[in-house]
Design a protein around this nucleic acid. Structure first.
Lengths: 213, 213
DNA sequence: GATATTATTGACACGTGTTATAAAAATAAT
DNA sequence: ATTATTTTTATAACACGTGTCAATAATATC
């Protein structure tokens, strides 16, 4: 890495650290570009040079923390695909719980920004991963043979992101969000899973069953 | 209505009309408070006096047009509750189709605004209506007796709004949005409907079935 | 009709994300 | 070491939503 690139990376790191500190100690409302620049000991222009926009700074924060639903969905090729799918939700919930306020504020800040391309990239990515998972599920006979895996994957991905949007907007708690997704996923998958995967889907469904009073 | 109230109402109407015209002809990005005031022939302060905020102006636009998912869910006490529930989705879709760009921009503008109370009012209202519908459904034996109607209603309402959020953010077309909700609703209702309502739920489900590659 | 209440106006200001511009500093290329 | 390129800086500015405040106009009350 050239000297120039190195210096830029150092600045990026300082800006990221400052942004995180401000959000953690004072809340995201206090994160303004001027305050961020001052705290990072850098001019107002520099965060724009190095990240592009305030939204991009927030995105870098999530990426740096490993927050990435798309990543969580990456095929791991263990056990049943359905088991992995639902395990992903546990993974995301654990992530939420590990630092609820911080992640929610950052995610909500990204989603409520007027950068449509950023968000749509996220959607397409998650949908693609879900479609891939469903393709594998079909290949492993975990789905009924007449299932439209493309549409099913799209449904699952959209569902996840729709609920994450509600989470980011503070309408749902961590647990509620995950339960909402799990219920929606189970609802459709119970209709399309094969005998091979039925046990896994049903187990997930039972864990969020809507019975009692 | 007093003379004063009348004059205010006239101003409100002019402002609403101007806002709608600007959004329709130039898009919501061009709707600024200064431009709105100028177009309506009113001072910059007046829209704030009469509506409260820019977000409130947008809300008034939707209300004036009769756009209200909560209203659409109001119990009509005809036929089966389940039939009404799904008919609501047709109603919303027709609404979308009647003026797609306009409604989406306005709804998206409201939802992406930083007025959390506005949005949460919307959520609570829709959830409450869904819960009421499910209570009635249970009373009419359209649900299995052990169904938690409160949680089920909450699930349905949250689901609708989560997807509407995606619609407002331009991730989903009108049709996709409605299908997404219908699938999610069917998925859970197929697990909880009684014999009395199964036919209705299954009909809705068949209309959005995910079969055929 | 005189007085009190209320609504609108105008001009200004604040804080925000973002951009413009030019100077200065740091680095790379020769 | 000199020159050329790239980055950062400083300062100002823009458009935006929103708020303040005094003045003014319209209406209501008596």
């Amino acid at each position: 890495m050239s000297r120039r690139e190195q210096a830029k990376e150092e600045n990026r790191a300082r800006i990221r650290a400052s942004a995180e500190r401000i959000i953690r100690t004072e809340g995201i409302d206090k994160l303004t570009m001027r305050r961020l620049a001052e705290d990072a000991g850098v001019s107002l222009r520099t965060p724009y040079n190095l990240f592009g926009s305030k939204t991009d700074v927030l995105i870098a924060l999530l990426e740096g923390a490993g927050f990435d639903p798309g990543d969580a969905l990456a095929l791991r090729d263990e056990q049943l695909v359905m088991e992995q799918l639902f395990a992903t939700l546990d993974h995301i919930e654990a992530f939420f719980d590990s630092d609820e306020k911080f992640y929610r504020e950052v995610y909500g800040g990204i989603m409520s920004s007027a950068h449509p391309d950023v968000r749509s990239t996220n959607v397409e990515r998650v949908v693609a991963m879900c479609q891939e998972l469903m393709t594998h599920a079909a290949a492993k006979n975990e789905l009924q043979i007449d299932t439209n895996t493309r549409e099913l994957g799209r449904y699952l991905g959209v569902q996840l992101l729709a609920v994450l949007g509600m989470w980011g907007a503070e309408f749902l708690s961590n647990q509620e969000s995950i339960r909402q997704v799990r219920r929606a996923w189970c609802g459709i998958l119970l209709q399309h899973c094969s005998n091979a995967s039925h046990r896994a889907v049903d187990a997930a469904y039972q864990s969020v069953a809507l019975t009692g009073s």
